[in-house]
Every structure is written in C-alpha cells, then in structure tokens.
Amino acid sequence: MDVDTGIDDSLALLYLLASPEADIIGIAATAGNVPASQVAANNLAWLDVCAAPDIEVALGAAEPLAIALRTTEDTHGPQGVGYAELPQSGRRVSGRSAAQMWVELVRERPGQVVGLCTGPLTNLALALRLEPELPRLLRRLVIMGGAFNHPGNTTPTNEWNVHVDPEAAKEVFDAFSAAPPDRRPIVCALDITETIEMYPEHLARLAERAGSLPVEIVSETDSVAARSAANNPIVRYLTDAVRFYFDFHRHYDQGYLAHMHDPFAAAVAIDPALARTRPATVDVELAGTMTRATTVADWAGMWGREPNADIVIGTDPAAFFEQMITRVGDYARAVYPPTTLEDA
C-alpha cells in the first residue's frame, strides 16, 4: 500500500486488514492529504486500533518531485482522519525509505506483489528511478487517481492525487508503457470512484454487523463537537472520521455522503473482477496553462502508442458496499467481540 491517509485511505486499510486474501507486506506513507509524517502516524495508529500484526510502515518523500506540497486538511481534517482522535502509537517507522521498501519488497517477490496507490505517486516514481524493472516485477498495480470523461475534483480538469504531483504521475504512466498487457495498471479514476457513495446508513449497517453499541445514525444536524459513543473502537474512530467526510461533501453541495475512492481501489486490488475495464494510453499534461495535471486517455490509438493502463469504466457500487460492510464489520467484531465490550 502507498497511501496518504486520509479518511478514505483509512477505510481502504481496514478493508485490506479485514480481507483474508490480502497479506499487507508494507505501507508507504506519501505526502498528500497531510504531510508524510502525519500519514505515517495515522497508519501506525490504525494498526494499533485494529490490533494488527507488525507491518512495516515506511516514510515517503516530504515533497513532490518538482513542486511544493499542497495538503488538504479542509477535506480530511487537521490530522487527516476527520474528527477522529487516534491514540498515539508505540510502533516505529521503518528505517528504510518508502521508495527503498517498494524496490526491495518487489525484488524479493518477483511477480507476486500487487501494488496499491491511493495517494500521489511520488514514492512509486522514486522507486522506479531506483528499479526501472518494477513494471515487470510487480504482479499488478492499482492506482486511485485521474479523471477522464469526468470533471476534476481539484481543478475543472484534474483529480487530487495527480494534481499534487503530476510529474510523478507522468513518470509512472510512462514507465508502465513497458509493462506486458496482463500487468498494466488498473486505474480507478473519478469517473467511477465518485459513484461509490457512502451514506450514514452504511455506517449504521457496519456497526450492526460488528455488534457495536449503540448503533448510531450520524446526521448533518450533529454538532461539530459531537463524537461517537460506539463501544467498538474500530467503529467509533471510523464513525468520527467518516462523519467529517460527510460534512465536507455537504459543504460543497454534493449531499450528506462521502465518495469512497480508496476503499474501492483496495477492493479492486484484491478482486479485479469487481471492475469492468478498458485499455487506453494514459499521459499527464504538464505544460497546459489551465490543464496542467490533467490525465488524458487515448482510447482510439491516435497517438500510435500501446496502451499503458486499464481504466475502470464500470462496477456495482451496491455489491461493493455489501462486501465492505461484511468484511470490515466482521473484522471489527472479531478484534473486539461484543461480549468482551459488554464486560469492559
């Protein structure tokens, strides 16, 4: 995982921890939603809350490749996890950089590792500079980023992760032009991820599945100072995080909902069959006055270049949420059994 945790990155991490098919071998902290050091702290804290085994968390670059870092605390809260106040972790950050971790883990397991990037692609671009064979050494790469036949969420034409480090995104897509067709990146862009709409009832169903009490229905009338009283810590912190995301989307007239971009990408990393894809050649605009950081897809081969990505063009949001609620709810229940919480 290479993440900029992040509210929806948090749920992506929970989804993978809750998935028996997934074995998380490393988490790279990339600067994006918040600075890289805060991202690493959030990842370590979530691992504690989830009573997860030791998983390496490596610190990524503090800045994008060529421009100053822009963060988005207005979207994800001052610490990146909304209203949640995660406990400080006693776990330590890895002694190697995120780029080094990428390279060394993949070299140790050629053809076995699935990479999941839900933040800017800075760390992966740096890893590609260290090991240009990464596109052939990875089993597959899943990227949450970009916007194709869809408006951007940061400027009229571009998506946040690419906006933060467009040079890195271009380096990654250029490098994967050398990947064989079965190892092209699967790109989960805004075209699809903005259809993955989470509502308060999804949180309530997850709490019920976890056996967490009380089962709360968060509301746009809740005070900013309100905090979840759920007795299951995973449900409690997740509720406080996601409620901030609901408030953010409502503030921008999108409804009292949250787009769960990153958990969907995590689900696709485990099971690509959840997504319908179409191959295309993807490039990133770097010189446009109004279109810098825009992802451009050549669907028809007009550039005369082979496809370097499989872009997700369809999915079933209801099926995704059913699976997510089942997995994360069951996981929260297993980590904190209701009988134990009742006795506490």
Rank of each mutant, 00 (worst) to 15 (best):
L141S: 00
R107I: 05
L69V: 15
Q100G: 08
L116M: 09
Q79A: 15
H150N: 06
P135M: 10
V49F: 08
P120E: 06
L116E: 02
V114D: 02
G80Y: 03
L137F: 11
A84I: 04
W46M: 12
A58Q: 04
A51C: 13
A52E: 12
R129M: 13
H150W: 10
A68C: 02
G82V: 10
N43G: 04
E131S: 14
L134S: 03
I55D: 00
A31D: 07
G115Q: 08
R109M: 11
E63P: 04
S37N: 12
E73L: 14
G77Q: 05
V103Y: 00
R91M: 12
D48T: 12
L128F: 06
V57S: 02
V113D: 00
G145C: 09
R129E: 15
E73C: 10
L126M: 13
A45E: 09
I143G: 02
R109I: 07
V93Q: 00
A31H: 02
L116D: 06
D48Y: 11
E131L: 09
T118E: 01
T118H: 04
T122L: 07
Q88E: 15
P132M: 13
T154K: 14
P120Q: 14
A61P: 07
G146V: 10
L116G: 07
L105D: 13
A36V: 13
V113A: 01
P135F: 04
A58C: 12
G82I: 00
N43V: 14
A125L: 10
P132N: 09
I67H: 09
G111R: 02
A147C: 15
V93M: 04
A52H: 00
A40F: 02
L137G: 08
V114S: 03
T30M: 07
A68S: 14
G80F: 01
G95A: 05
S94I: 11
G60L: 01
R129F: 03
G145P: 03
G145Q: 06
P151D: 04
G95P: 09
S89G: 13
Q79N: 14
A29F: 01
R140C: 01
V114C: 07
T75L: 11
V106C: 03
L130Q: 14
A61R: 01
P110D: 03
E56V: 12
I143H: 06
P135C: 09
M101Q: 13
T30F: 02
P64T: 05
V34A: 05
L130F: 07
G77C: 01
G152A: 09
Q100V: 15
G82S: 04
R139E: 11
V57H: 00
R140V: 03
D48M: 12
A40L: 08
V49K: 04
E108W: 01
L59P: 08
C50Q: 09
V57T: 06
P64K: 05
V113G: 03
A51L: 12
G95D: 10
L86P: 03
I67E: 15
A52P: 14
A61H: 06
Y83A: 10
V49W: 03
F148Y: 15
N43I: 08
N43D: 15
R96F: 01
A99H: 01
E104R: 02
N42T: 01
R70Q: 14
Q100T: 15
S97Q: 04
Q88N: 13
N33E: 13
A99T: 04
L137K: 11
Q112F: 03
A147P: 05
G152E: 02
G111Y: 06
V93R: 08
A68M: 02
A98T: 01
